[in-house]
Design a protein around this nucleic acid. Structure first.
Lengths: 214, 214
DNA sequence: GTTTGTGAATAGTTTCACAGCA
DNA sequence: TGCTGTGAAACTATTCACAAAC
């Protein structure tokens, strides 16, 4: 049913399905089933079928899903069917790791520009990307980059986000643990590493571990 | 109502509230209201009150929340009231950034050990932490570390997770985009950076929110 | 026979509105 | 009066069971 609201949770899972499909396709498979894909990525088969059904379904009953077809459809929905250029702001420890991070390419992402305020870094290259002066960020708009990755200290994040938004960036992946305000039409996704670690102890039973009897 | 099931979403938000409370306390404030805290972190006041109500509520009607009291309660619930030692496995680009990452300390985390398989790194120090031989990971159990951070290449993650679980680690923050299997009693939280970026383009044409934190 | 696609049932979460207390 | 705490209502998401299609 194409004319239905898509649950946010479904959108969150689509990249997982895409990765699984790419993985199976890379192993030489031509097609898969909701059961096989579910086993691979650790969800339930009906969840996959339900999620796909919001977009009309990509499979063939009694047969399964053709992988090329599946990959094409999901990529299109996520708008990952063409290379997406991104700009990185903040080439510190985390930013440098992101420049070297191999995982972006699989989805068609390319870090096309990097900015920092540290004069010692400006003009150098990291992982093949030239580090430019963050003071020149406002001239970014000419390059038509619509995605930004923000890896600056907490205190600087709001300013960077403002500048990116003015430069035409429409989507921001924010690694700063600060709630940022953006204009309408700009979407922010925050990754807060410390916060994810912080809820881990909650789930761990208190006290010393009992010896495991297997 | 102390004897009620706590929603996962509530647990996910508790570290956000804790950070907000620590921030206000650091600014010298003695107390706050659900309204003030909500404005700071970008949620609605009733969400905060509802979440706190699952634990009986920490406030005073007509007055608000005493910050010390709030911080003490939330820290206790999350088991962050004593220093939590963690072990890092994989001191590559991302692992090194995590060693240098200042955000863990606020919640009382301490990276107490680091392991890698690269002979050139073993024996050296990064951000003050000695890098040990990953082959010796099985001797970790003597140190009583219950939290692990896994920042190894995708193909190695399951093996590392297995070894950590055998060594008594009960909670794992996993940066590998691979579904891992763990024994009962071990909790895994996965941070998949590329996947969070991958759902950003979906929202770009129709984006609308003004204040966003997640 | 097999596997998808989907309405209906169930479960979980957010939002509301106001009672309860300082 | 002001702000918290909370049951009830509204909303959202997951799970089920089976009809439909190959």
């Amino acid at each position: 049913m194409r004319h239905q609201r898509i649950p946010d949770e479904t959108v969150r899972r689509l990249p997982v399905y895409l990765r699984g499909a790419l993985h199976l396709s890379g192993r030489g498979l031509e097609s898969t089933s909701s059961q096989e894909l579910a086993n691979l990525i650790g969800v339930e088969p009906w969840q996959i079928r339900k999620d796909f059904s919001y977009f009309g379904g990509f499979g063939t009953r009694g047969v399964g899903y053709n992988l090329d077809n599946l990959i094409r459809h999901v990529s299109r929905i996520l708008r990952l069917d063409a290379t997406q250029n991104a700009v990185l702001v903040g080439v510190g420890n985390l930013g440098s790791a992101l420049l070297a991070f191999p995982g972006f390419r699989m989805y068609g992402f390319e870090i096309a520009a990097a900015f920092d305020i540290d004069k010692r870094k400006i003009g150098r290259r990291k992982s093949g990307v030239l580090i430019e002066d963050a003071a020149a960020l406002n001239r970014l708009s000419a390059r038509g980059i619509r995605l930004g990755i923000v890896a600056v200290p907490e205190a600087a994040s709001q300013g960077v986000v403002d500048t990116l938004a003015e430069a035409g960036v429409k989507g921001i992946l924010n690694f700063s643990p600060r709630c940022v305000t953006v204009p309408r039409g700009v979407k922010v996704i925050t990754i807060d590493i410390a916060m994810d670690l912080a809820r881990l102890p909650y789930y761990i039973p208190a006290g010393r571990a009992i010896r495991q009897c297997v």
